[in-house]
Design a protein around this nucleic acid. Structure first.
Lengths: 172, 172
DNA sequence: CCCTTTTCACCTAGGTGGTAAGAT
DNA sequence: ATCTTACCACCTAGGTGAAAAGGG
C-alpha cells in the first residue's frame, strides 16, 4: 500500500535547465525486530519492545519519482510529493514496490541524480548524485496500524478514508 | 468528451535514441455545415445533407501526446494511442481540448516533431517535422450520435459503456 | 423540427480502514 | 497472544449513453 504520511520535499538550488532524476530508497535503522507492548486496558500502547534480531533483509529496491527525468525548473517550482510510492511485505512482489519487513524500523532516503549530458557520463556517476536523510521520517513498518492517533490522522487527512470520518476534518 | 474511435498509429523508422514530440490537430474538410436526413420511420438515417456554409472556424488547437517528448525507441515499441484526446464544441474551453464545430466535417492530422538538440534548432524547424494524413479517419463532429451502429459499436467496445450492454460483446 | 445542454445511473480503476479468519 | 491475510463497504476520480429539458 501507499506510504502514509507521504514523503514530500521542497527543492532549491538546481540548475533550472538541467535534467534530474529523483528517487527514494529505505535502509534498516538497526538490526532488530520489534513488537508491541500489550496492556490489559489499551488496545495498543504507544511503545515498542525489541523482540529479537532482524529478519534477513531483501535486496533494497528503489522508487523513481514518476516525473523523472525532469528539468530543475520543473522540480523546484512546487513541492515534490512521493505519493505514488508503495510499500509491501511480499518478498515475491513483481509490481516494483518497495519491499520492507513488517515490525522493523526504516530510514527513508532521498536521492537527486543529475543527468549528465556528457558521453562518458558513467565516469562521473559518483559526483552526479546527492543523498538527503531526514531522521524525523524514520518509522516502523506494520501490516496494521498500531496507534489510534495515526489511524485518526489518516482518516482525517486522506480523502480515500472519508467513509470512516465521523466529523468534519475542519473541526478536528 | 474523448474522441471515439481512438486515433492509433504504429510507428517505424525513428532514430531510437532521439527525442520526438507526437501531436494531432484537426482541419476542416470543406466549407459546409451538415444536417441529418429525417425519415418518418428511421430514428436517424445514415446520410447527411449539406445545410449551408460552415460556421466560422476557431483558431486550431493542437493536442500533444501526453508521453511527449520521448525517445524513438519508446514510441516505436508499441501502438501509440491518442485516447486522452478530448473534443469540445465550447469556444471558451480552457481545458486545452480540441475545439470543433458540431455538424462539420474534419480531417485529423498526425504530426511527428524531431527534437533537435542543436542550439540553433529553430532554424531547422521546417525540416524537423513530418505530417501524416489518413483520409479514412475523416468524420462529422456531433453532440449526439446520429447512427445506432456507432452507438452499438461503442457500447460493445468501450468498457465505460458496459452499463448499456445487453449481451456479451464476444457474441456481437 | 432539429440540435444542444444538463443531469443521471452505471460503469472502470483504484485507494481507505474495519473485520474476521488464518498463521505462528 | 500477536501479527498477517483476504475480503469488504465505502470512498475518490472520471468516462459512458439515455433521457429530459432547453433553444432557435
Amino acid at each position: 500500500r501507499r506510504m502514509f504520511p507521504t514523503f514530500q520535499v521542497k527543492i532549491f538550488g538546481m540548475d533550472p535547465m538541467a535534467d534530474y532524476m529523483l528517487l527514494m530508497d529505505f535502509v534498516p535503522v538497526d538490526d532488530k525486530r520489534y513488537r508491541q507492548v500489550t496492556s490489559r486496558y489499551a488496545f495498543h500502547s504507544s511503545s515498542w519492545l525489541v523482540a529479537g534480531k532482524a529478519d534477513p533483509a531483501t535486496p533494497g529496491r528503489v522508487h523513481y519519482h514518476p516525473d523523472s527525468p525532469a528539468k530543475g525548473a520543473q522540480w523546484m517550482k512546487q513541492i515534490v510529493s512521493f505519493d505514488k510510492l508503495k510499500l509491501t511485505n511480499n518478498l515475491l512482489d513483481d509490481n516494483g514496490h518497495i519491499i520492507l519487513n513488517s515490525m522493523h524500523r526504516y530510514q527513508p532516503r532521498f536521492h537527486v541524480v543529475y543527468v549528465d549530458p556528457r558521453k562518458d557520463s558513467e565516469k562521473y556517476a559518483e559526483e552526479n548524485f546527492k543523498t538527503f536523510v531526514f531522521e524525523e521520517t524514520r518509522f516502523t513498518a506494520v501490516t496494521a496500524y498500531q496507534n489510534h492517533r495515526i489511524t485518526q490522522l489518516k482518516i482525517a487527512s486522506n480523502p480515500f478514508a472519508k467513509g470512516f470520518r465521523d466529523c468534519d476534518p475542519e473541526d478536528w
